[in-house]
Amino acid sequence: MRVLVAVKRVVDYNVKVRVKADGTGVDLANVKMSMNPFDEIACEEAVRLKEAGVATEVVAVSCGVTACQETLRSAMALGADRGILVESEAELQPLAVAKLLQAVVNKEAPQLVLLGKQAIDDDSNQVGQMLASLMGWPQATFASKVVIAGDKASVTREIDGGLETLELKLPAVVTSDLRLNEPRYAALPSIMKAKKKPLAVIKPSDLGVDVSPRLSTLKVAEPPKRSAGVRVPDVKQLVDKLRNEAKVLP
């Protein structure tokens, strides 16, 4: 069984992004970029499926600028067998990415597509669901456990009230939540081997996909800042302030 993993290059989660003064976006110049943490989890899960003998091949796909090759190399260093970059300088919105992935899925015919539940840059939480929809496949979002048995996947999902377990008919789309696994550190030999694994670069036009954006960003602003309040010396004064100053307690 082939597993496809989608990986996105995003601002590293440790970076505190700053909104550009002209309000056109956030300042990404010379900012550290990494693989989206949820995608890393998805990739780790795919590799574990391979190590467990369930998957036979793990293919990592990224859509975006040339530098996404680094992200694909990271995925291959984690254990993906090969990479596909759908290269585009244009802004790719979730719908466009889902269509690109659909085209790749049609070519590669995986039984399972693993993605992160959301990317930590635009926080959209859409691509996996959109891809499943376009393919007419079942989906399990926010997965915290994935078990494959025959042509079925049993997936435990983190939902608002707790957990639920779904049984999906393969092929299917699964998006990872944080607790699905803890990704490994890539080993040095794997990083070096990753360099030699095949990485194909294709263009959206090769796939016949129109990637024009549907949403235009009019402005990006800094959220209202919360400023630090006061330190209270003890519990008595805290309760007094909550009652009489903030009036949030009766």
């Binding site: 505190k16 992004v17 956030v26 840059d121 635009d122 009019l218 990006v220 959220p223």
Partner: peptide, 12 residues
């Protein structure tokens, strides 16, 4: 909100 709420985008 985008970037974990560190920015607010107005989109059309």
């Amino acid at each position: 909100p985008i970037y974990a709420g560190n920015a607010l985008a107005t989109v059309k």
